[in-house]
């Protein structure tokens, strides 16, 4: 994809060029407010570019017909930065929602799937709670379970481990890795954590000023000499 995007007079992406191969896990890093979330929103068609083009699975996202987009999104998962749970539905219903709306599974099959995904994100005991009653990190993980429930082929994670404790954060990293490996999924992951880069990345890019500044495999990325990257990661990345 190659995009330009401005909100009114505010230019966020200016000629960002990026491509992700099938089965690859790409990690996006960059300072807060550079447009990482905006980039992912273009991929799933929540935002339309001003110029340039975005291609997903052979579809030009600016020309895609509503029905095709509907079908394409069934094959995609998206984890929102804030979880974006439906606040008047219980945790279980939130996770089950994509299945309830677009599949013909029976009630008990759905429950099994929901239970399985909640277990993957370490939320076994949580079921009837409402989103307002659980913590931010838990919401994030419920959002992750919802993104995984349809077993999509392309998953976009917006900061999957921000706000989680180190232990759970690491296991979420491993989960992303595992999902990517076993199901041959294509993923794009936004993160600020070096540990996440180490665990999940096949390739890492650093965004700034609406452009890609560094694009490298994880080991090379972490030892890269680019001055902006060195400053971004700090002197001694953990």
């Amino acid at each position: 994809m190659n995009v330009c995007k401005a909100f009114g007079s505010k230019v966020v992406l200016s000629g960002l060029t990026l491509d992700v191969k099938r089965g690859e896990t790409l990690v996006l890093m960059g300072p807060s407010g550079t447009g990482k979330s905006v980039t992912l929103r273009h991929v799933i068609g929540l935002l339309r570019q001003d110029s340039g083009d975005v291609w997903v699975e052979g579809h030009d996202m600016s020309l895609i017909k509503p029905l095709e987009l509907f079908e394409l999104r069934k094959r995609m998962g998206y984890l929102f930065q804030e979880g974006a749970l439906i606040n008047w539905m219980s945790v279980a219903d939130n996770v089950a929602l994509p299945l309830m709306e677009n599949s013909s599974l029976s009630r008990s099959e759905m429950e099994d799937r929901v239970r399985e995904k909640l277990k993957l994100v370490h939320l076994d005991g949580v079921w009837d709670e409402m989103p307002g009653e659980i913590s931010g990190g838990m919401k994030k993980r419920v959002g992750l379970a919802r993104a995984l429930i349809t077993e999509p082929e392309l998953i976009l994670y917006d900061e999957p481990n921000a706000g989680l404790d180190p232990e759970i954060s690491q296991s979420i990293n491993e989960l992303i890795r595992e999902v990517a490996d076993t199901l041959k999924i294509t993923s794009m992951v936004i993160t600020h954590m070096v540990s996440c880069v180490r665990t999940v990345a096949d390739r890492v890019v650093l965004l700034e000023g609406g452009k890609v500044i560094v694009d490298a495999p994880p080991q090379e990325f972490l030892n890269h000499e680019h001055p902006r990257l060195r400053r971004f990661l700090g002197k001694d990345p953990d």
Binding site: L46, K74, A84
Partner: peptide
């Protein structure tokens, strides 16, 4: 947006 990406009408 979340409803939109999970293809809920």
């Amino acid at each position: 947006s979340a409803l939109e990406v999970i293809s809920v009408d």
